[in-house]
């Protein structure tokens, strides 16, 4: 019951935070001047803005905005990217590519990262551990766009193993799961994964080495378990408790990293939409994409916090 109350409290806080952030975004963006339309359509354009209430005071506009969002799920209109398309609908066609690249990357990096971490921990202070730890240090530090470039140049351009950019939906035969599409997504997925793999491996190694030196491991060995059995049944279970919440954190870092990967590999995803909405000053699209990224950030924070409580019985939720 206490758990339920705590979850409710956290979700309530999430909604309030989300609301405040959207409010800040909306009012700051509306404070900016709208550029004056030119040319043949100028009169129509101005009339449209008047009808949509763009010339009213900001507080009134905000009221209209809130009413539309809550009652009709309308976030305004795109003025530049997709002319007169409802802003929330500009996200929908771009969502699959972003989600797919992120999902592949997460699916790829979790087993690899954990496996490397375990391997390094078991072989602690041996040559394997040194190699893994050094490369982890390199991959954690070097920004993802640098190895994106490296792979684009070597694997994509020089050796020609993979396409340099992700193919469009049309070129891939109209589906997200054709061979062409998957093949072209390999480079961005790799570029997105390396950092997370390294982070996960480092974290797993630290947790597992701590577990391996603990006293219950000594007990397990002295009661006659083999080393491998002791590790797999005793140390691993305890080491994984903090690793699982860390994985939720990775989801967030992968999502924010994907904006730059989308730009490098020309993926027409939400990240690109966001960047274009800033460059073209498509304000309503900016607000809705900001809301999209905010909700992902907040949700992953909550998941991290809650998963600690669910997994680790020593942490009692809702207690000070």
């Amino acid at each position: 019951m206490r758990m339920f109350k705590y979850v409710c409290k956290r979700i309530g806080l999430l909604i309030v935070t989300f609301f405040v952030i959207v409010t800040i975004c909306f009012s700051l963006i509306k404070l900016l001047e709208n550029e004056v339309p030119l040319g043949m359509q100028a009169v129509v354009e101005l009339a449209r803005r008047e009808a949509l209430g763009y010339n009213k005071p900001i507080i009134e506009q905000y009221g209209i905005f809130l009413r539309n969002v809550i009652t009709k799920w309308e976030w305004g209109y795109s003025w530049h990217i997709n002319y007169m398309m409802p802003a929330q609908e500009t996200i929908t066609p771009r969502l699959p590519s972003t989600l797919l690249v992120n999902a592949y990357s997460i699916i790829f990096c979790i087993p690899v990262g954990i496996a490397l971490g375990i391997w390094a921990a078991i072989k602690k202070n041996k040559i394997t551990d040194h190699i893994i730890s050094t490369s982890v240090m390199l991959f954690v530090s070097v920004p993802s766009f640098v190895y994106a470039f490296l792979m684009q140049y070597t694997l994509g351009f020089r050796l020609g193993f993979f396409p340099v950019i992700v193919s469009s939906l049309h070129d891939a035969g109209g589906s997200w799961f054709t061979r062409t599409m998957l093949h072209s997504m390999i480079l961005p997925v790799l570029a997105l994964s390396f950092g997370s793999i390294a982070g996960l491996a480092r974290y797993t190694r630290a947790e597992l080495t701590e577990a391996l030196t603990s006293e219950y491991m000594l007990l397990a060995r002295s009661k006659g378990l083999t080393r491998s059995r002791a590790i797999s049944t005793h140390a691993m279970k305890n080491a994984m408790v903090p690793v699982l919440p860390y994985i939720f954190g990775i989801v967030l870092s992968v999502f924010s990293g994907s904006i730059i990967i989308e730009a490098i590999f020309a993926i027409n995803g939400v990240g690109q939409l966001y960047i274009r909405s800033i460059h073209l000053r498509d304000y309503d699209v900016f607000v809705v994409t900001s809301a999209f990224y905010t909700i992902i950030t907040l949700a992953s924070y909550i998941l991290v916090d809650l998963s600690y409580g669910f997994l680790d019985p020593r942490i009692r939720m809702g207690e000070r």
């Binding site: 975004c25 963006i29 904006i259 905010t294 924070y301």
Partner: peptide, 13 residues
């Protein structure tokens, strides 16, 4: 909770 990219974009604009 505000994603940094949103902050940076708002300050720039």
């Amino acid at each position: 909770g505000i994603p940094f990219i949103v902050v940076a974009a708002l300050f720039q604009l």
